[in-house]
Simulated scan of single mutants.
Amino acid sequence: MEIELRFFATFRAAVGSKTISRSFDDGADVGTVLRALETEFDGLEGEILDDAGELRPQLSVLKNGREVVHMDGLTTTLADGDAVSVFPPVAGGNGDAGTSGRGEAGAGADGTVRREKAFRGISERLAREYLVNLGGEKVGDHVVEGPDWRTETSAEKVDVAGSMQLTEVTLVFEGPPETLEPLMEKFGRKAMRAGG
Rank of each mutant, 00 (worst) to 15 (best):
V68G: 10
S17V: 08
A79N: 14
T76R: 03
G73H: 02
E4A: 11
R128S: 13
S17M: 11
G106N: 14
E185F: 03
V69I: 12
K186L: 10
P176Y: 13
L166N: 08
G27D: 09
P176N: 10
G146P: 03
N133H: 11
S123Y: 00
E67F: 10
A13S: 15
D29A: 11
S60Y: 05
K138I: 00
G101Y: 07
T167H: 02
G93T: 06
G16A: 07
D29E: 13
G111K: 01
L37H: 09
R12C: 00
A9P: 11
G140M: 02
T170W: 00
A52N: 14
P57R: 09
V172G: 04
A118C: 05
A97M: 10
P147Q: 12
E54K: 13
R115C: 13
M1C: 11
N94A: 14
N64L: 05
D42P: 15
T77P: 02
S123I: 07
K117G: 05
T112D: 09
A155N: 02
V86H: 11
K117N: 04
S85A: 11
A28V: 10
E185R: 08
M164H: 01
V86F: 06
D26E: 15
K117P: 00
F11W: 03
R189Q: 11
A155S: 14
R12H: 08
P176Q: 12
D42W: 09
D50E: 09
D29N: 12
E54R: 15
P89S: 11
D29L: 03
I48P: 08
A127Q: 04
E40Q: 15
G31F: 02
G188K: 05
T153F: 08
G135Y: 05
E40I: 15
M1K: 13
T170G: 05
